[in-house]
Each structure stands twice: as C-alpha cells, then as structure tokens.
Write a protein that binds this DNA or RNA. Structure first.
Length: 657
RNA sequence: GCCGACGUAGCUCAGACGGUAGAGCAACGCAUUCGUAAUGCGUGGGUCGGGGGUUCAAGUCCCUCCGUCGGCACCA
C-alpha cells in the first residue's frame, strides 16, 4: 500500500478545486459546501465512477456530488440497487428460511432472486413491501467493509447462505470482496450504495412474482424472483405505472378481440383464427409486400408444407431441430415420416437445383410467403408475437460472394422503405459476427463479415456490434425498430449462409466454366406477418392508418329517411375501392358513433335528412370530434386518395438504386 | 419445458364456512325516427376448461390433463 498523503485536492465540475485533509469522505466534502447538500447527497462521482458517500478518498481527483435531483441514469440505478437490498433485508426478516442470491437493478426497476422451498404468495409480496417501507423509515446506515475471500465464504456458509458463498468462490481471484451491512443484513456486493436506507425514498412498488433459474441455466434450481419498480419520486413512479397501463391498453390480444380481428382457442394453441377483418389486414400487408418484392426483382415461389424427413435430414434440420418439428404419418405411409416445414429454405434450394444455374442467373432472389410450423415450448406462446404456425415474408438470395455487399445494400434500402411505409422511422442494426463453433474457413468469414458491415455503414444506420452471436453457418444482421411508445421489436434479419448450399449441393457454372457453390442470404423484413401485424396494432393502438384499416369507412344514418341516400354513398365508396359498411340500424346516432369508435373505424360518414337533401356527408374521423360537412364526390375522392397504399402513390421510391 | 397465478353466459366480473349458479354490457323481441361516444321495456342464454376422486351433497376440497396470463429457459 502506498503511504497515505497528508491531503487530497479535488476538482469540482465548475472548475474549482479544494484541498482537504486526508482521508476525507464524499459526505465531508458535501457538508463543507452546505448542510443542504450533505442531506441531499446520495453518492459521489470520483474520476467518472460512482462511489459510496462514506468511502474515504485518498487520492487527488475530479469529484461531483450526486443527488436525487441528478438526471443521470446512474442515480436511478443506485436507487434501484438499494431497493433490491431493502427487499432482501425485508425478506430475511420476514422469512428467515430464505437464502438470498442476486438482486440487480434493471430497466425501470429491480428484482431479487430468493431460494426457498415454500412459494411466495401475493400476500407475501405486500408484506415484503410494507417491511421495506419500515426499513426505509428506520434509516439504517449502510456501511462498506472489505473482507478476506476465505472469511467471506466461511461466513456465508456458516449462516446458511450457500448461494452467496458460491458466488464468492467463483469471483475472479483479483476481485476485492466487499460486504455491505445495513441493520442486521449483511450482503456481498460490489456497490456502490446509498449512505443509509432512508435515502431510498418511498417511490417503489413490488410488482410481481416469477420463477427464474439460478444463473439463468434451466439445468439449475428454480429460484423465486420478486420484481419491483423504483424511482426518484412519487411523480416518476406514477408516470411509470401510467406507461404500463398505456401498454396494456395497446395489447394486441385485447384489441384483436375488440376489433374482431382474430381469436385463439385451445384446440389450436399457437395458431391464429383470422376473422374477416383480421384476414383483410393480413391480406393488405401481404399484397403490399408482394408489390415491393416484385419491384425489387424477387420471384415468388411456393414449396410443399409436408415433406419427407429425408430432406430435413439432408438439410441438417432433423438432427438439430427435430424436437421442434411437427411430424405426420398416414395409414399407408409404410414407415416413412413426413414433417411440416419449419422453414422454407430447403424447399428453395430444391427449386434452385432444377436445371443448371449459371453465374448469369445470379443473384437469384426467391421469395415465399409459406406457412411454417414450429413446435414452440408452451411457455413461449404469446398472442400473435410467438406462434407455432406462422408465415414469414421469407426470401433467399442465391449469389456469389462478390455480390453480398450489393445485395445487402439493396436489401437494407428496401427494408427501410417498408418500415417507413408502416410508420416506423427508427431502425437499429445489430451486427453479429463469427461464433466460436462455426462452419467454413476464416478467410470466407472475413470476407462475409466485411461485406455485411460495409453495406450497413453505407446506409448510415446505427449499428450495434454483437460479437460472437452469429449463426454457425454465417454472420447476420438483425433489424430492430422502435414503436410509438419506445419499445424495441426485432423484425428484419439478413443471414449469410455458406453451409446449406453445400449440404444440399447447390451449384452454378462460373465464368471460367467451373462449378461453384453460391452463397445463400436468408432474409426477412417483417419477420412473420402475424407478429408484425401484432406490432402494428400495438404501435397504432388499434387506430390503423386508412390504407391498413379493415373497415375504412362506415356510413351511418340518423333517420330512415336518409336510407336511400346512404345506400348511394355506400355504393360510391365501394366503387372508389374503399372498404365501406352501411349502418342503417334503428339506433340513435350517438350509439352508432360510440360503437364504431370503439371498433376503431377510421372514418364515419354520418348522413341525415340535411345531408341527403344537399348530397353531402358529415365526416367524423376517429378520435376527433370535429365533423366537417363535405360534398359527396369530393369526400369520396379524398378518402380514396388517402387509402392508397404508400407504395402505389407514384413516389420516387425505387428500392433497387 | 420450469416457477407462480388464473380458467364461471359472447365480453368484463360477483359467487365467506361445500347445500344444487348471479350482475352489467352484448344478443334476441317490442316500442321509439332520434343530429355525433350507451333510448326504454321485455326475453332467452351457463354439463362453472376436460377427466378422475373425497362427500349425503362440489363452481367451491384433492389429484391429473389442457389452455391462458406474468416471468425464466428456448427462439433454426
């Protein structure tokens, strides 16, 4: 240990420096400035890193006093981490038989994993939250100690905290073992922490109970995880709870029922029953994608859904994914086993292989909207977002290695255009490169990775690097879009594949007459149609733009005197290609407005005696109480123009250049 | 698949201690012709997720299977 200096000189964010006798703590520094600051202080930032307020400072450096008013996300992390400790202390007090394990801060809150034979109940959750509030009221000092590794292991084993002892045993040798003590609770923790439990405040709430595997491994014991949320103050907590309600209000499963788009039932778990409205939405999205792909020089194909297992054996799927495949037999199949396709690519290679291909045929872009079945674990199913029967906007590009960059570039341009058409502007790209276990030469990987990265960089999109996360058969790009309330959804993907053309023996004749292997690019923009429609519903909270809405316009009458005219209006709308309905029921107009508003119909044309006489319509847009009166012809042509899919409006968008 | 909660009318939900199912909305019928988010009156509707058990008696207690929800794990 170097000798401790007599004094330390600390530089403040405003540029001022002060010298203190050594050792000095963050608390001392704050107190020397003002008692108010000492009270508000939660931690210090010393040379950029957050540090306990009570920890001695023994060297010169740059210091900043961190308070609850600090907008820095680190403050929230500190609060959440302390909330997790308070939860653990509460749990130990209430249930002495629990073992504590880990309790980190996470997005919006924190959790703590406990080991205990008896399951926690919702009542236990309330009891723990109440005890946490007591612990905050006690304002217990939180102190830091450095222990010898062996002492720490022995101590935690002796008090029955075997998980903690295991964590310490597995810490790297050079890691300092620090222990935090608050009240009667002693925990291994890297820190930093607040100076006392009172500083945590009361803007927290325990939210739910869940199971979680020890160390995230399904072979390990299942622990009980308690989730909570914690914020700087009541206002932030309320805002967060409000955001949760908003997300629940947008839930596509609920909106799907309210808008009669689709339903699920037990006999077909993980598969969708699309009702007329949902099927219309689906068809609109699919027709749009067909036009976009056709314009981008893709050829659409269709391959069998039920295929003999020998093909899956050759493609390698049988070996790797057999337990996730649905198999089928018939009375007469004589021992042969068929399987529902989990993906389209092996079928596409079969089409590619019909006849000899030359370099002149490449790149060959083969698209299919084929229904795939995957036996997903029961716990994974989630509305439209995770299904057992799904349809991707799938395509495979057979090309030469030299063409990867150009193909990737034009794919990304197409993808951005599509996302923009659906109302998504923010796109993040994740670049996953070679994993440890992989097929193919390093030289080929070098070229493929460089090609992908180069193509992405040209587009100027934000890139996140995921080292080692590529598929065993090649590197990949994943495209993540952000929805209206800031949630991220990974939809698009582009994967380079060196392996499948080899396994299924795809070839082309090169310029020199030699037979070569093409590279396959597996790519999708929406991901699955089902899931993307779920995302659209949540993004728009059910208020779909006119071109996507299953029912675009409802004509509603006020009195039966207007019935004849209303029929004319309805016919004019349909003639203009709009999806329109006529509501002549003997109900008050307020009732009709409410009903169609709840069903999220974007445009309501109200006609009464006045409109019939003037040949006009009163236009009511969803969510807007204004109701301008327009001439019939003018209104129909304006709506017809607005309802045009964005790719058909004659813009300058051409994805290929 | 694992942990926990849940499954009652089309939907949202009530149904202490086991004693043979109830409301609102919706649906249907009748009346009402009405000017922008619920017109009134009336009627019908449930083998309480499936199966098994305990009991004189099960929506209620036990076992089991299925499904849903929230996580975890998984996601070619």
């Amino acid at each position: 240990m170097p000798a401790q200096p007599q004094s330390v000189t600390l530089a403040f964010p405003d540029g001022a420096t002060r010298t203190y006798p050594c050792p000095v703590t963050g608390h001392d520094v704050a107190a020397a400035i003002s008692p108010g600051l000492a009270k508000a202080a939660l931690a210090v930032r010393l040379d950029g890193g957050l540090r306990d307020l009570t920890r001695p400072i023994t060297a010169d450096g740059a210091i900043e006093i961190v308070t609850g008013k600090d907008a820095n996300p680190e403050v929230l992390e500190l609060i959440r981490h302390d909330a997790a400790h308070a939860l653990a202390e509460a749990a130990k007090e209430l249930y002495p038989d629990v073992q504590v394990t880990i309790g980190p801060a996470i997005e919006d809150g924190f959790y703590y994993d406990f080991a205990r034979d008896e399951p926690f109940t919702p009542a236990d959750l309330e009891a723990m939250e109440a005890r946490m509030r007591e612990i905050v009221a006690r304002d217990e000092p939180i102190t830091r100690e450095v222990w010898e590794r062996d002492d720490a292991v022995r101590y935690f084993d002796s008090i029955g905290e075997h998980y903690k002892a295991e964590i310490i045993r597995d810490l790297p040798d050079d890691e300092e073992i620090t222990i935090y003590r608050q009240g009667g609770f002693v925990d291994l923790c890297r820190g930093p922490h607040l100076p006392s439990t009172g500083k945590l405040g009361t803007a927290f709430k325990l939210t739910r109970l869940a199971g979680a595997y020890w160390r995230g491994d399904s072979r390990n014991a299942m622990l009980q995880r308690v989730y909570g949320t914690a914020w700087r103050n009541r206002k932030e907590l309320d805002a967060h709870l409000h955001r949760l309600e908003e997300a629940a209000r947008r839930d596509h499963r609920r909106l799907g029922r309210e808008m009669t788009l689709f339903h699920f039932q037990e006999e077909a778990a993980g598969a969708v029953f699309w009702h007329a409205g949902g099927a219309t939405l689906y068809r609109t999205v699919r027709t749009y994608m067909r036009r976009r792909l056709e314009a981008a020089d893709y050829q659409e194909v269709q391959t069998p859904e039920l295929v003999d297992r020998t093909l899956w054996e050759r493609s390698g799927h049988w070996e790797k994914f057999r337990e996730h495949m649905f198999v089928a037999e018939t009375e007469d199949s004589g021992g042969s086993t068929l399987a529902l396709k989990p993906m389209n690519c092996p079928g596409h290679v079969q089409i590619y292989k019909q006849g000899l291909k030359s370099y002149r045929d490449l790149p060959l872009r083969m698209a299919e909207f084929g229904c795939c079945h995957r036996y997903e674990p029961s716990g994974a199913l989630h509305g439209l977002m995770r299904l057992r029967a799904l349809t991707q906007d799938d395509a495979h590009i057979f090309c030469t290695e030299d063409q990867i960059t150009a193909e990737t570039g034009s794919f990304i341009r197409l993808l951005r255009l599509v996302y923009r058409d659906f109302g998504f502007e923010d796109v993040l790209v994740k670049f996953a490169d070679r994993p440890e276990v992989r097929a193919g030469d390093d030289a080929v990987w070098d070229r493929a990775e460089a090609a992908l990265l180069g193509a992405v960089e040209e587009t100027g999109l934000a890139v996140e690097h995921n080292p080692g996360e590529g598929a065993f058969y090649g590197p990949k790009l994943e495209f993540v879009l952000a929805d209206a309330i800031g949630r991220s959804w990974q939809c698009g993907t582009l994967q380079v594949d060196f392996v499948l053309p080899e396994r299924l023996d795809a070839l082309y004749t090169a310029t020199d007459g030699e037979r070569r292997r093409p590279v396959m690019l597996h790519r999708a923009i929406l991901g699955s149609f089902e899931r993307f429609i779920g995302i659209l519903i949540e993004h728009y909270a059910g208020n779909l733009p006119l071109w996507l809405a299953p029912r675009q316009v409802v004509v509603a009458t006020i009195t039966s005197d207007a019935d004849g005219y209303a029929r004319e209006v309805h016919a004019a709308l349909e003639a203009a290609g709009l999806r329109a309905e006529l509501d002549r029921r003997n109900e008050k107009i307020g009732y009709k407005v409410r009903e169609h508003s709840l069903a999220k119909v974007p445009v309501l044309l109200v006609v009464g005696r006045r409109e019939a006489e003037q040949r006009q319509v009163a236009v009511r847009r969803l969510g807007d109480s204004a109701r301008p009166v327009l001439a019939l012809g003018e209104c129909v042509s304006a709506l017809a123009a607005e309802a045009q899919p964005p790719d058909t409006t004659g813009g300058t968008d051409t994805p290929m250049n």
